[in-house]
Amino acid sequence: MPLRIGIILGSTRPGRRGDQIASWVLDTAHAHGGADYELIDLADHRLGNLDEGGNPNLQQYEHPHTRDWSELIDGFDGFVFLVPEYNHSFPGALKNALDYVYREWNDKAAGIVSYGGWAAGVRAAEALRLVLAELQVATVRAQPTISTHPSFHTGAFVPQEGLDTAVRGMLDQVIAWSGALRGVRETKAEAGAAA
Score class of each variant (00 low, 15 high):
residue 116 G to H: 07
residue 39 L to Q: 13
residue 7 I to K: 11
residue 25 V to M: 08
residue 26 L to R: 11
residue 22 A to D: 05
residue 54 G to D: 05
residue 44 D to V: 03
residue 60 Q to W: 06
residue 144 P to K: 05
residue 147 S to V: 03
residue 94 L to Q: 01
residue 7 I to A: 13
residue 64 P to T: 09
residue 12 T to I: 13
residue 145 T to N: 10
residue 94 L to S: 03
residue 190 E to N: 10
residue 100 Y to P: 00
residue 105 W to F: 03
residue 82 L to H: 01
residue 190 E to T: 10
residue 168 R to M: 04
residue 80 V to Q: 13
residue 49 N to K: 13
residue 193 A to N: 12
residue 19 D to L: 10
residue 110 A to M: 01
residue 168 R to S: 11
residue 176 A to D: 07
residue 135 L to K: 12
residue 30 H to S: 13
residue 124 A to H: 04
residue 96 N to K: 00
residue 70 S to M: 11
residue 161 E to L: 03
residue 108 K to R: 15
residue 107 D to Q: 13
residue 124 A to K: 01
residue 144 P to Y: 03
residue 106 N to F: 11
residue 189 A to F: 11
residue 160 Q to R: 07
residue 56 P to I: 01
residue 52 E to D: 10
residue 180 A to L: 08
residue 54 G to Q: 06
residue 173 Q to W: 08
residue 32 H to P: 07
residue 37 Y to G: 10
residue 126 E to S: 08
residue 132 L to K: 03
residue 23 S to K: 13
residue 79 F to L: 10
residue 105 W to P: 00
residue 153 H to Q: 14
residue 169 G to N: 07
residue 54 G to Y: 01
residue 131 V to H: 00
residue 189 A to P: 10
residue 90 F to I: 00
residue 71 E to A: 15
residue 46 R to T: 05
residue 162 G to L: 01
residue 63 H to A: 13
residue 191 A to V: 09
residue 165 T to F: 09
residue 17 R to W: 02
residue 99 D to R: 00
residue 86 Y to T: 04
residue 27 D to G: 14
residue 13 R to M: 03
residue 123 R to W: 06
residue 136 Q to M: 12
residue 171 L to M: 01
residue 90 F to A: 00
residue 151 S to C: 15
residue 54 G to V: 07
residue 61 Y to L: 15
residue 151 S to V: 09
residue 127 A to N: 08
residue 57 N to T: 14
residue 155 G to L: 05
residue 138 A to G: 07
residue 10 G to E: 10
residue 43 A to P: 00
residue 55 N to L: 14
residue 112 I to P: 12
residue 35 A to R: 03
residue 159 P to D: 08
residue 83 V to C: 03
residue 62 E to H: 06
residue 61 Y to H: 13
residue 87 N to Q: 06
residue 193 A to Y: 09
residue 188 K to Y: 15
residue 121 G to Q: 05
residue 73 I to W: 02
residue 106 N to C: 14
residue 174 V to G: 06
residue 64 P to G: 09
residue 27 D to R: 15
residue 126 E to C: 02
residue 4 R to C: 06
residue 101 V to Y: 08
residue 124 A to R: 03
residue 72 L to I: 05
residue 114 S to I: 01
residue 62 E to Y: 02
residue 171 L to P: 07
residue 168 R to F: 04
residue 173 Q to T: 00
residue 1 M to A: 15
residue 128 L to P: 12
residue 109 A to K: 08
residue 111 G to K: 07
residue 159 P to T: 06
residue 86 Y to A: 01
residue 130 L to R: 08
residue 150 P to I: 04
residue 34 G to P: 13
residue 112 I to F: 07
residue 26 L to G: 13
residue 70 S to N: 10
residue 39 L to I: 07
residue 33 G to S: 09
residue 176 A to G: 05
residue 72 L to R: 11
residue 17 R to D: 06
residue 19 D to P: 12
residue 102 Y to R: 12
residue 16 R to I: 04
residue 125 A to I: 07
residue 89 S to H: 01
residue 73 I to A: 02
residue 67 R to F: 02
residue 117 G to M: 11
residue 71 E to L: 12
residue 52 E to L: 02
residue 111 G to R: 08
residue 82 L to K: 02
residue 93 A to K: 04
residue 18 G to N: 06
